[in-house]
Design a protein around this nucleic acid. Structure first.
Lengths: 233, 233
DNA sequence: AACCCATAAGGTACGACTAATTCAAGAGGT
DNA sequence: ACCTCTTGAATTAGTCGTACCTTATGGGTT
């Protein structure tokens, strides 16, 4: 997604990373660097670099005289974009999308509220532009065009919040939205109510109405939760 | 904090990481692997492993014939616990604490609401235990004991939410709370109102009252925002 | 039970070679 | 004279292989 073949160690990670995040090795499993190097037909230096990266993601732990042991899932750096991508590509993709959608539902309303206070005129403009783009692509099976504007819309909201922690979730939201469009729910055209909500959020931000922007965004994310049968009674 | 001296490459990262996250090199700055190896008096192999780790955190980008270029702050993996620690140890620690406190204010209320539905009896018990511990240490300059229970309380909330993305923010919250106690605000004893709120959150979770748990936690985080003069009018 | 040592892993260092990419000099055309 | 394209040299990361060091483990000895 980001950088396909950035060297041999990257190539190794492309297959070893998903294997680990996919649960291919139970926690505590021990891998030997030399064996891995042999398996991937690379030198020990390259293999060591790959292991270092996995170690920095807390996927594995390297100890002398023992080897490279796979850590429990609860220790992984699940916010690492690479780890997120690997997990979304794996078997428990549905569970991932649920986790991330719940995360969205917590973050985005607050981000929208902040955006209403901090958005620049340019950001306000792009927001309405994207909302209108969503309207324009909401009928007639133009799902790809719709997705494009949807992703951009939420990205602007997160960036306009002025909080860098929120802003950095843009990629995550993009993955979730793309996942919804391509693999899971979303049958025909998108829900007209959701489209309208986006337009109203753009208006609220433009009007500097933080409370309304927050509440409207909350409605959007509640809709996303419902799509995945995550109840909030 | 986690693993002090896990090899030479770790030792290098302990000084090079903070230098980069601390803004020691403007974005686009170019480092040469050989020079760095010379500077830290390590072999090129070790230096390369360190660079790989920095690269996996998106702090730098390594390109042939160019060198190791420092990326813009907006590209860093700011959710990486290591990066968070480095930044909190740096000069713009206050800005970090603000970002993270805003993040808390978005996450924790939702997490508390979920905890009210998913917490096990054991988690409910620990929650009340920790709340009572906070009460017990809320007077008489027992700040360290108070912090201990405060951190544990919020950690349980995040874990009891059942959402792994929330659960993995436990360390971040711990850093923020510790930062508040040790360096910044918090003069004498903690705010009695905040202590009471924690007790009431524990009760709400125990009573399975999600809406109340969420609202009470929101009051806690609003208090944290106000301490840092982050207004929410 | 305490101790010690053989051993099996990762950790480090070094040197040689490869490969890609930038940059500049020069050829050629306009 | 100016611009463009080509070409080639220089530079830096990438890869490999080997030799050796360090440490934890586990079994054997006292």
């Amino acid at each position: 997604m980001t950088t396909p073949g950035r060297g041999l160690h990257g190539r190794v990670l492309d297959t070893l990373g998903p294997e680990i995040t996919g649960g291919g090795y139970p926690p505590g499993s021990v891998l030997r660097t030399d064996e891995l190097a042999q398996r991937f037909d690379v030198s020990r230096s390259v293999m060591r670099e790959a292991v270092r990266v996995l170690e920095s993601m807390h996927l594995v732990e390297s100890r002398r005289r023992v080897g490279v042991t796979v850590r429990a899932e609860s220790e992984w750096n699940v916010y690492d974009p690479q780890v997120i991508r690997w997990r979304l590509a794996g078997a428990d993709r549905p569970r991932q999308l649920r986790s991330l959608t719940v995360l969205r539902s917590a973050i985005e309303p607050v981000a929208a509220g902040l955006a209403a206070r901090h958005a620049t005129p340019e950001q306000c403009a792009e927001l309405t532009e994207r909302a209108l783009g969503m309207v324009a692509h909401s009928r007639g099976h133009k799902l790809e065009g719709y997705l494009l504007h949807d992703v951009a819309f939420h990205r602007v909201i997160l960036e306009a919040s002025g909080n860098e922690m929120f802003a950095r979730l843009g990629d995550v939201v993009a993955e979730v939205l793309a996942g919804r469009t391509h693999h899971d729910v979303m049958f025909e055209d998108p829900d007209p109510a959701a489209v309208t909500l986006h337009v109203r959020v753009a208006e609220a931000v433009r009007a500097r109405d933080a409370a309304r922007a927050e509440e409207l965004t909350r409605e959007i994310t509640v809709g996303a939760l419902q799509e995945l049968d995550i109840l909030a009674p």
